[in-house]
């Protein structure tokens, strides 16, 4: 994925590059790219060909719901290995209507402003600028009604 946007700062070219192809759509609003097992109907993220729940092959690619509810959350205060972005950042699990719980970054870094069951919406966020000046982006969830 490489979509051209207005650069948020003068240093970047404005080209956004996903941390990995096939994780989310290049649309507004964005959607996570998952799959649905044709045999048992359960959903997966990231996409699988083989259903981890019933072992059936040929799971269908689907776009997952863009909104869900917060199930667990914390804030990462120390940069973990292999991460070149800023800290702190929010980190949590969001439950989607498909019955899927997704591990994700959160845009909210203050855990006291988050609570179980809070409505969340999927967004694409910059992580860092790479050596070519491209903005490296990944998926995250943001509170729909910040409290």
């Amino acid at each position: 994925m490489a979509h051209r946007e207005t650069a948020p700062d003068g240093g970047a070219t404005g080209v956004a590059v996903s941390v990995r192809e096939g994780l989310f759509t290049d649309t507004d609003p964005p959607r996570l790219l998952g799959s649905r097992c044709q045999a048992c109907g359960r959903h997966h993220f990231p996409r699988h060909d083989t259903c981890p729940y019933c072992t059936a092959e040929g799971a269908l690619p689907v776009e997952l719901s863009g909104t869900g509810v917060l199930w667990s959350w914390t804030t990462v205060t120390i940069a973990p290995p292999g991460y070149g972005g800023d800290v702190p950042y929010g980190f949590g699990v969001v439950e989607l209507p498909e019955g899927l719980r997704v591990v994700t970054r959160l845009t909210e870094t203050d855990p006291s402003r988050l609570s179980a069951g809070q409505r969340m919406a999927m967004v694409v966020v910059p992580v860092r600028v790479d050596d070519d000046g491209h903005r490296v982006v990944t998926y995250a969830f943001a509170p729909q009604d910040p409290r």
Binding site: W71, V76, P80, P81, Y83, G92, V103
Partner: peptide
């Protein structure tokens, strides 16, 4: 320091999802 595990793929680390203590924290929250 924080354990770097070959378990996580590069895109997970780059996204900040390779933060081992954060998973402990999510379990603690639940």
């Amino acid at each position: 320091g924080m354990i770097r595990s070959s378990f996580f793929e590069p895109w997970q680390e780059e996204s900040g999802l390779g933060a081992t203590p954060a998973y402990f924290a999510l379990r603690a929250q639940r």
